[in-house]
Structures are given as C-alpha cells and as structure tokens.
C-alpha cells in the first residue's frame, strides 16, 4: 500500500476518522473534504484513499452502507462505528500529545 511521503504514518487514518465523525460520506467526498480542510497542504493522492478506507473498515472502526447519493447514483457511504468514535478520541489525544512534544522539541532547537 503506497503512503504519501509527506503524511506521517497513521495520520491519514486519523484525518478520515475525524472527517467521518461529522457526517457519513462516500469515498470521493471524503477525498474532496480532505483537500478542503487541509487547505491543500496535505497531499492525499486518490490512490491511497481507498486502501485506507478498506483497512479502517476491516478493522471495524468504520462501517459502510450503499445509499443513493445526490445524482441518483448508488454510492458507498462510510460512517464511524461506536468503537471507531472511541478510537478517534484516543487517537486525537495521542496526536495532541505527540504534536505538543514535537513542537516543544522543535521550538527548543530554534531557541
């Protein structure tokens, strides 16, 4: 599975979970949302999105249902599961700790 080089391992998962925490979305919409929210800073190729989604689904963090979408086409909508929501909370906390620590270290060097 190819991972974007500029994304920290696991970060993509966290972003997807965070986006899905707001509302269930289909794959393409998730990709669009990713680009929007990160203001194009995070380059997520379409190629790495689907394997990540499938992996999350297989892990039981998200679940998928086929529903009619805007243009009357059937689309696969992903939603957070209850364990997924808890997982997101844990991962968010982890991320914040990590970010604080790293930014602390980075500031220290600059100082």
């Amino acid at each position: 599975m190819s991972k974007p080089s500029d994304l920290v391992q696991g970060t993509l998962d966290l972003l997807i979970l965070k986006i899905l925490a707001l509302e269930p979305l289909h794959g393409w919409a998730i990709g669009q949302r990713l680009k929007q929210v990160s203001g194009d800073v995070l380059q997520v190729s379409d190629g790495s999105l689907y394997p990540a989604l499938h992996k999350l689904e297989q892990s039981g963090w998200i679940t998928a249902t086929w529903k009619p979408s805007d243009n009357n086409r059937r689309a696969k909508f992903y939603a957070l599961t209850r364990p997924g929501r808890k997982h997101l909370e844990r991962e968010t906390a982890n991320w914040q700790r990590l970010a604080t620590a790293i930014s602390g270290v980075v500031m220290l060097r600059k100082a």
Binding site: M1, S45, G47, Y50, P51, E57
Partner: peptide
C-alpha cells in the same frame, strides 16, 4: 494511480 493496483491494495486490506 491505476485502478487495478488500487483493487489489489484494497484486497490486501
């Protein structure tokens, strides 16, 4: 980036 590669990656998942 190649539909078949995508499929394979998803199957791996």
């Amino acid at each position: 980036g190649g539909v078949d590669q995508q499929k394979e990656a998803c199957r791996d998942a």
